[in-house]
Structure formats: C-alpha cells, structure tokens
Design a protein around this nucleic acid. Structure first.
Length: 783
DNA sequence: TAGGCTGTGGTTGCG
DNA sequence: CCACAGCCTA
C-alpha cells in the first residue's frame, strides 16, 4: 500500500496512476501487453487456462482510463457476478475510485439496469419483476395444468429449457410455430403443444410485468431493434466494449453485441476474450460458432493468443493438451508452461464410491501436512452434485471444514422467497407468481378454489390476477378475505416511493403475518428460518446504504442506480449461492466441474472419472456431447496449480443400486508418464508407471480390467477384519506397524506435541520413500 | 391445511 | 437411494 499525501490533488492522482500503470505494464508479457495497448478496433484474445486473461482485461480497461477515456464509456460484460466483482476490484486497485463508474457487470445485471430505465418503451413497468427458475417453472406448471395437458409428457423443467433455448436463438412463439424442425421434434417427442405453452407463457409474463432471465436479454434485443433512438443512445455511450468468456455467449447475446458495435461510423471497439477449449455451456445454448466466426464479422480483427500458462506445472499442462487434442474443430494454439514439475498427477483407483470418498479425504489430510496447504487451497470437483455426499461424510469424519457450492442459494430458501414475494407484491402487484405464493400464506381464508377462480377470470379477460380479484363472484367469507389482502398490499404500494426500504420491509414482515408464523415454530430449523428473514432485512438496509453512497458519488449514469426496493429485488434475483459471503473461514471447496471454471487451487481432486458419469451418459447421446464433456474435463484438470489427483471407482451407488463402471475414456487419452498410480485397498501395490514410445497406440487396455491386478492381499485388506488400532503411545521410532491402506512399515521418527503427534513411516510397498502420518487420525497397529 | 403417503424420475446450470 | 410433486387424510 502506498501512503497518500494529505494534500493530494488531481495531478497527484494521475501521477500515481501513471506510476501504477507503468508498473503494471511491466508485469505483462509481450503478447499480453500488445493486447492491452491495442485499444482501437475489434480485438480477439484467445486465452488458454491460466494465461492471465483477467489481468489482460483489467489492465486494458485501466489503460483506457489512463489514456483519458471517461469511465462511463467503458462496458465490460461477464457471465458471473464473481468475475464482475473481481474485475472491478482489480481495476479499482490500478486506477482508484474512477473504476466505480465503469459499466462492468454480468450480461443480466447490465441489461436489467438498462431495461429498468427504458422499460416503458416496450410495454413493461420500470419496476418489472424478475422471475427466477422457480417462478418460471411454477408458472409453466400452472399453464400446463390449465391446458389439461399430461404433466408427465410436459414436465415443466423440460419445457422451460426448450423455451429458454428458443429465446436464446431469437425464436419468438410465432417463429417457433412456423419452424418446421422444432415442431417436428416436438411431435416426435409427443409434445406437440410446446409452441402454445410458449405463447401463453410469454403473454402471462408480459401481463405480470415480469421478465425471466432470458427475457433480460431478449427484451433488450427487442428494445434496441425496435427503437432506433435508444439503440443509438447506447451505441454512442459505450465506446469501448469488453466481453469475458466469449465462448459461452449464445446467439442472442451475440446479436445484442453486434447491434451495439456495428452501425455506420462505428469505431468497432470490441474486445473479446475467450477460449474455445473451455466452452462447456453448449447445452444451454452457448455456441462455439460465435468465437469461430468472429473473424468473418470483423475483417479488421486483430487476434492475440495467450499461450503461456502461468498456473500449472508441466505434467498438468501436458495432460490437458493431450486430452483436448482429441477434439476436432479447434482454434490452433499451443499452451505451454515453464513451471517446473514437482508432482505427477496422482491417479486413484477405488473399488467403491465410498472408498473414493475416504481416500480423497485421507489424501487431503496428508497433503495438508506434507505441503502445508490451507483448506482454501484445495478443491474437490465432480461431474454431478449428487456425488458430493460421500466426500462430505469423509471430510466430516476427519474434521476437515468444507463448503459445498451448488446448493440452494440463500434467496431460494422458502422463508426468504416468501418474504421476497411480499416485497415484490408491494412493488409490482401484477406479479402473478408472487401473488400465488403469498395470497394464502400464512393462511387467511383464501382457498385454492378461490385462487383458481381468480386465475380463470384473469385468463379469460386477459387481465392480471390482482385486478381480477375485484370482480370474481365468491362467497362472502372469501370476498372479505380478499378485500383484506388487497387493502394490505395497497397500503404498502403507497409507501414504496415514500418510505425507506428497510422500514417498509420490516412492516411487511410483521403485517403479512409471516413473522408470527415463523415465530410459532421453535424448532432449531424454525429459528434458523427466522434468522434468515431477519438477514434479508439487514441486507436491505445494507443495500440502501451502500448504493446511496455510490449513487451520490457517481450520479445517475452509473451501473448502481438509486437504491429503491425495486432495484434491490432485481439485484438479489440475479445472485447465486456462489455470491454469498463465504465468511472468513478456511474451508475446502466442493463443487461441480462446471462451477469451477475460472477458479484455481493449489490442489485439485477431479473425481468420478468413469464412463457414463464423466463423460455423462446423457452427453454421450448428444451429437457433440462427447467433445463438450472433454472440454469440461479439460477445464477441470487445468484448475490445478501444483497437485492434481484424479480418482475413479469401479462400483458406484446410482439410483439405489450398485453399478459397476469402466474407467473414463479420458484417462486413456493422457500419456501414462504423467501419472503416478495409487491402487485401491485391493491392489497389493500400485503398478509402476510405464513410459511407452507411442502412448496413443499402446495405452488402450492400460486401464482395463486384465491389467489391473486384483490380488486379494495377504496384508492390508485381510488384516482389516481383525485389525485393532494401537494407542498412539505405542507408535515409537523403530516399531513395525500395519496401516490399513499402506500396509506394513517401519516408524522412522515421531514428532509433535502430545495429542497431535506425526510419525514418519517407511512403508514396504510404497512408491514414496516415506510418509508422514498424523497419529490422531491414523489407523496403525503395532506388529 | 398441514403432514403423510405414494409414485416417479433422476446432468451439468450463468443469471 | 433420495428428492419432490401431487394427492389424500385427520
């Protein structure tokens, strides 16, 4: 940290900035620096894993600011909040508070911000609701039910992804109906009415003043397409546009970008960063064509390839290169590293998924001691979230702290969604999903039959349920209840613009009856739920405070606009569980391979490398599914800086029964010289790694059963039946001991304080000269 | 109107 | 096996 003089002024600041800039430009390699300083015209940066992509992006923006470009003319789009936050922080670190005014955010956040100020032009209120996946699914379920369609053939989730795909490809309901291909597919899948569902769904969203996640893109596209003046406004405004992870953009996102960049007289200052080898979201509409075709759309394009990997050691980079070489249709590049090797890739073969869990946990403990790793430097990755359980069990057994990503986000919890639905009602009472959620929760005498009546009435007359409530014919009791509900919501509506968001929200919590309902539950879970809704109130007050400050400092033309309740609601609907404050705790990360993209750890465990799991059986049926799985595996292994461990199990519980599985084909695509094999309990000793002249030709069969010795051991496993662990006092230098996993060994030394002693043991059948064993956890028997 | 029972189906998931 | 939706019952 540099000490700032007290009388600093503008010239000091720019001198300071210049100092930082010069300093930072020196930190870039030649290609990186060339990319950063090429500020005019279209630029494509192909960035391999660990090649300093974020650095290039942030320094480029800092460089623009330094050359006098006003921050509000700079747009930087990312896919995740995390990436956006990181980028902003790093720009701020280089250029100071000026960074706040750069329009850096996720596609969804930036577009929602624009839509909020221009919504009236496309028939939406500026305080439109954002439907999350749950809202969308439940609305679709309602529509399917109303249409009397078979909910089994029309599973709401499947319909949702179909509609999402249509939207991502700019296919309107009408275009969908006219699209012979899609209609034919639907007929074949025995779901001929998807187009009708899509049409109804769109109408209902519009009526409710709601947009789903895809709409944030689609409606922005429509806004620009149909309103030349607005398009021109933003074309003029954003002189420099940046896109991170460009390989994950879909057709619609690209269409929007093109509209922002391509117009008569445009400087075409678009800077995109991506890696075709890391494209793993084709299944949700991302198209690799965008990056492959970019050059055709921008003939003056300048391309830079970042090929030096600063993250991983040689074995890891080579393994990654070998695997990805099996994919066809790639941008030509060679990723290399000069990071010296200390470790081979550990390959752990297990008999069962339980053993996999145990051995990964044990290895983590061992690595922590051996290499002084923090928990935060370790990640366990898996293909499907269901695999996390085994690892959790075994990490708990060893008292290792961990955090599982990919679960419910805070804002998806029931009690939180309930409160948020009430807040949404206050801001936008036409919001049908919010209304359905809270109209009779807590119970206030409005039966499902009444709700159905309201819904039917609204449907017939194309009005909102909020309005339809006034007209329907119901018994007096229900009528009274409805009137009370309506009055309550109306009283809040008036306060949205006059009262503070915090006061209003806490009143809503009390007046709605939600607080009492939660208080009546005194179970530990119930208390937790109460704490959660209170946390929402705290979050609201924090949101208003921060945004007030930002708003006052940066004015209306900033990504953070005035801190209204509506703005808060839109913000939280764009958060995921990865965005939650993790706390200061040092924990091991458990996440799916998808979520790991963009992250790095000193030690990474890539697990479940089995056919039909990784690659997934679902992907194997898709046309380009295998290639995408391979890219996913590529992403997974390139997360590791120093230590990479890959594991697989021969038997795994899936859908209630044990199923046996073959090792993943991806393992055969890596030259065995990068591996160090750790056999299972069943293997008496790990087979020695072998180097072969032509690995591609000869590895086949390397992983298959005949080669894997399955000797019933006289040692470890047989011993496990009558194995009794000796007390740690008995483990003294010179003693011969039996370890459940490593077999027989000799204790060389014992060190550390009582209760936390660590023994160095030389095992007979071990590829390592010795191992450090923590006696507190070890299962050792003195022989 | 909450809770229990039954049947079903089951990747990955940004925002 | 486990989660979840939808139906039925107290």
């Amino acid at each position: 940290m540099l000490f700032l003089p007290l009388d600093w002024n503008n010239s000091n600041i720019s001198a300071l900035t210049a100092f930082y800039m010069a300093h930072y430009l020196d930190e870039l390699n030649n290609v990186q620096r060339a990319a950063v300083t090429t500020t005019e015209g279209p630029v494509l940066v192909i960035a391999g894993p660990g090649s300093g992509k974020t650095r290039v992006l942030t320094y480029r923006i800092a460089h623009l600011l330094e050359s006098g470009v006003p921050p509000w003319q700079i747009l930087a789009l990312t896919f995740t909040n995390k990436a956006a936050r990181e980028m902003k922080e790093r720009i701020e670190h280089v250029v100071g508070p000026n960074a706040q005014q750069v329009w850096a955010g996720t596609f969804h956040a930036v577009f929602a911000r624009i839509l909020r100020s221009e919504a009236s032009r496309i028939g939406f209120p500026s305080n439109f609701s954002i439907y999350d996946t749950d809202d969308t699914t439940s609305l679709l379920r309602a529509i399917i039910k109303e249409m009397n369609l078979d909910p089994q053939a029309y599973s709401a989730g499947a319909i949702r992804s179909r509609i999402s795909l249509a939207k991502s490809n700019l296919v309107t309901p009408k275009a969908y109906r006219d699209n012979a291909d899609m209609m034919q597919q639907d007929r074949q899948a025995k779901r001929p009415y998807i187009a009708d569902i899509y049409e109804k769904y769109t109408a209902r969203c519009q009526r409710s003043g709601a947009m789903d996640f895809d709409d944030l893109l689609l409606q922005l596209y429509r806004l620009f397409r149909d309103h030349a003046d607005i398009a021109a406004k933003y074309q003029q405004k954003f002189r420099y546009i940046h896109v991170d992870e460009f390989q994950d953009t879909n057709f619609l996102q690209y269409a929007i970008l093109r509209r922002l960049v391509k117009y008569p007289g445009s400087p075409e200052n678009i800077f995109i960063v991506g890696d075709d080898a890391q494209s793993i979201y084709a299944f949700r509409g991302a198209t690799i064509d965008n990056i492959l075709d970019f050059e055709k759309d921008y003939p003056t394009l300048q391309t830079f390839k970042l090929e030096q990997n600063y993250r991983s050691t040689h074995h890891i980079v080579s393994a990654a290169n070998e695997v990805i070489a099996f994919n066809r249709r790639q941008l030509n590049k060679t990723i290399w590293t000069d990071r010296e090797d200390r470790h081979k890739i550990k390959l752990v073969k297990c008999v069962t998924d339980d053993e996999e869990g145990r051995r990964v946990a044990d290895l983590i403990l061992e690595q922590k001691h051996r290499y002084h790793l923090l928990n935060a430097e370790i990640a366990i990755l898996y293909r499907t979230n269901a695999q996390s359980r085994k690892f959790e069990e075994h990490l708990r057994r060893l008292n290792l702290p961990y955090r599982v990503f990919g679960g419910l986000s805070f804002y998806q919890r029931k009690e939180v969604k309930d409160l948020v639905a009430y807040l949404r009602m206050a801001v936008n009472p036409n919001d049908e999903e919010a209304l359905r959620r809270v109209i009779n929760y807590p119970a206030r005498g409005i039966s499902p039959a009444t709700v159905d009546k309201i819904s039917a009435y609204a449907g017939e007359r194309n009005m909102t349920m909020w309005d339809a409530m006034l007209f329907i014919d119901v018994p007096d009791r229900a009528r009274k209840s409805l009137a009370i509900f309506r009055n309550m919501v109306e009283s809040w509506q008036g306060r949205v613009s006059t009262d503070t968001a915090y006061r209003l929200a806490s009143d809503i919590l009390r007046r709605s009856g939600l607080l009492d309902a939660l208080k009546s539950d005194t179970s530990p879970e119930g208390i937790g739920r109460l704490e959660n809704v209170n946390a929402v109130l705290d979050a609201i007050s924090e949101f208003t405070d921060t945004n007030n400050t930002l708003f006052e400092a940066n004015g209306p033309d900033a990504l953070n606009d005035a801190p209204s309740l509506a703005a808060y609601l839109q913000t939280i609907s764009l958060l995921t569980d990865a965005d939650e404050a993790a706390g200061e705790r040092d924990y091991i990360t458990l996440m799916s391979t998808h979520s790991a993209k963009g992250l790095e750890y000193r030690s990474v465990f890539v697990t479940g490398l089995e056919e039909n799991l990784f690659p997934s059986f679902m992907a194997l049926e898709e046309p380009n599914g295998l290639d995408e799985e391979r890219r996913l595996f590529y992403v997974a292994i390139t997360r590791a800086k120093e230590l990479l461990t890959i594991s697989y199990a021969q038997n795994r519980y899936r859908y209630g029964q044990i199923r046996s599985s073959e090792p993943s084909r991806f393992l055969e695509e890596i030259d065995t010289r990068h591996f160090e094999l750790l056999g299972g309990i069943g293997a008496s000793r790990p087979p020695a790694p072998q180097t072969v002249a032509n690995p591609r030709a000869s590895v086949s069969g390397y992983f298959s059963k005949p080669r894997m010795r399955q000797t019933a051991p006289a040692g470890p496993q047989a011993g496990s039946a009558n194995f009794t662990a000796s007390p740690s006092e008995a483990i003294v230098p010179g003693a011969t001991v039996l370890h459940l996993k490593f077999g027989e060994g000799k204790v060389k030394s014992v060190e550390g304080p009582q209760g936390n002693k660590v023994a160095t043991i030389q095992f007979k059948d071990d590829e390592l000269p010795d191992r450090r064993i923590v006696l507190r956890f070890a299962k050792l028997q003195v022989l």
